[in-house]
């Protein structure tokens, strides 16, 4: 969402980049020869890991985008609950916390198998850039993308590196 806060910079961006894969696009397969990929979110299930490896294989520069991708952040809080395994996670989420109709997703193929421990992106693949923030502020994204578009190795510093 904070990407949308880029406001008019989005218009500036539009003619210079080709958006080839995104949750808001109807593209099923991650394309090849991608120049830059902003990866959001921590890795929680086997699909995420598979996807991360695919992204790494097909992308020149991978950016861990936001605190979840970099630290695990709130999505990794389940690690410290000591739930131990995915069954317990599902139990907590779908049964204990449910206000009505407690039921665990049972059908195969609906919910990808959860991994035991939520991981930041760089634990699984090589990450070229880290864009911190929860969410990363639009100004920070803009600064990063402008440098990258100008052909530089983006460098952020000071408050632009702040978590949270």
């Amino acid at each position: 969402m904070s990407f949308l806060d880029l406001d008019e910079f989005l218009l500036e961006l539009a003619p210079r980049v080709e958006l080839v894969f995104s949750p808001i696009m109807d593209v099923k397969e991650f394309p090849a020869d991608v120049d830059l990929c902003l990866v959001e979110g921590a890795l929680c299930n086997t699909d995420h890991i598979e996807m991360a490896h695919k992204i790494r294989r097909l992308t020149k520069a991978v950016v861990a985008f936001g605190d979840c991708a970099i630290t695990g952040n709130v999505s990794a809080i389940r690690n410290q609950l000591g739930l131990g395994n995915r069954e317990n996670v599902l139990q907590r989420a779908y049964m204990e916390s449910a206000q009505l109709n407690p039921c665990k997703p049972a059908l195969k193929g609906i919910v990808p198998p959860l991994i035991e421990r939520v991981m930041p992106l760089h634990e699984v693949i090589r990450v070229d850039y880290f864009l911190t923030g929860c969410p990363p502020h639009a100004e920070r994204i803009k600064s990063f993308l402008s440098q990258w578009l100008a052909g530089q190795k983006p460098r952020l510093q000071g408050l632009d590196l702040k978590f949270g």
């Binding site: 970099i70 630290t71 952040n73 709130v74 760089h122 880290f130 408050l159 590196l161 702040k162 949270g164």
Partner: peptide, 24 residues
């Protein structure tokens, strides 16, 4: 977890992290 911390923005640990360039 800075994003849900009471001291977010007023934390010496957090401040040192960004001033020393700790991005991950």
């Amino acid at each position: 977890v800075c994003s849900v911390c009471v001291a977010d923005g007023h934390c010496e640990l957090q401040t040192l992290a960004y001033s020393l360039g700790m991005d991950h």
